[in-house]
């Protein structure tokens, strides 16, 4: 009896919390389907009389969202792939190759992981300015092509791979490069997917950096484009909410599909170190 009572309390609290968590999403969705008048009417109504799907079409054309999408897709995919590539190579070197100063170099990199990225903002901006990279795709991508965090997670995974697999592959005639790409990487695809998904989330949602290094509309990524859009639509909240949904939707879908990888990625990264 006591246990049942406790359970009821637990579920009630959790449901209440979940409602609070979901509220902004639901409110965004319903607002995006209202007319501007319906959106501001008091008392609030939850559902509009007719669903205004045209809001999405209107919002889509009100700003170059197609362009923003392409930019976000390009930046996210190139940074993610690039980061995986550099991290996989480095993680392999740290786990499978012999070289002088291996421990020291690794310790230095781990220490760097604790430096807040924001501290590097200004000097990086200056560097890019001197390279004449401001307002180019390179500025959006190149500085993010290396992630010590990703390298660290992959190193942990590569380290856990039984050594015998490596020796077996070498005996079977594979060189290091072949072993890496034919065996090690495919055998660790779960971990690689996990870090890749975390990177996609970070890259897709990143705001301050693209805001600072881009000036022109044609280079804006979705989040930056969205904030620019707010000043244009003013108080047309249904349009604004529709546009917000554009930004959020791809990652929501990705999250629901790859949930287990994301959670694995977070727990692996933070607790196994």
């Amino acid at each position: 009896m006591k246990k049942a009572c406790k359970n009821i309390i637990s579920y009630t609290l959790l449901s209440l919390g979940a409602a609070v968590m979901l509220l902004p999403f639901i409110w965004m969705l319903v607002t995006s389907l209202k007319t501007p008048a319906e959106a501001i009417v008091i008392p609030k109504m939850w559902l509009p009389k007719t669903l205004q799907w045209t809001n999405y079409v209107q919002a889509w054309h009100a700003a170059p969202f197609a362009r923003y999408y392409l930019n976000s897709l390009l930046v996210t995919s190139v940074t993610t792939l690039g980061q995986l590539f550099t991290s996989i190579l480095a993680a392999f070197a740290f786990t499978h190759l012999q070289f002088y100063g291996r421990r020291t170099l690794f310790a230095v990199l781990i220490a760097l992981m604790m430096v807040p990225g924001e501290l590097l903002l200004i000097p990086n901006f200056v560097t890019l300015a001197h390279l004449h990279w401001i307002d180019t795709y390179a500025a959006l991508i190149v500085p993010w092509l290396a992630s010590i965090f990703t390298m660290f997670v992959l190193r942990q995974a590569f380290q856990a791979q039984p050594r015998s697999t490596y020796y077996a592959a070498r005996i079977d005639g594979a060189n290091d490069w072949q072993y890496l790409w034919h065996i090690l990487v495919p055998a660790n695809r779960t971990t690689i997917t996990a870090v890749a998904v975390l990177q996609i989330i970070g890259s897709w949602n990143s705001f301050m950096w693209p805001l600072i290094v881009t000036n022109s509309d044609r280079l804006r990524t979705l989040p930056v484009g969205l904030t620019a859009f707010t000043s244009e639509v003013g108080t047309n909240y249904p349009l604004l909410m529709a546009a917000t949904l554009f930004v959020i939707l791809p990652l929501l879908v990705l999250y629901l599909l790859l949930q287990k990888y994301i959670i694995a990625g977070i727990t692996k990264a933070d607790l196994k170190g």
Binding site: P162, S164, T165, Y167, A168, A169, I171, D172, G173, A174, Q178, H182, I183, P186, A187, R189
Partner: peptide, 25 residues
Amino acid sequence: GMVFQDYALYPHLSVLDNIAFPFKM
């Protein structure tokens, strides 16, 4: 040719691909 104590089979490859790996290399 070497067989390891833990067999060291490539976990992501099928039996056929495991056996064929040396040929592939």
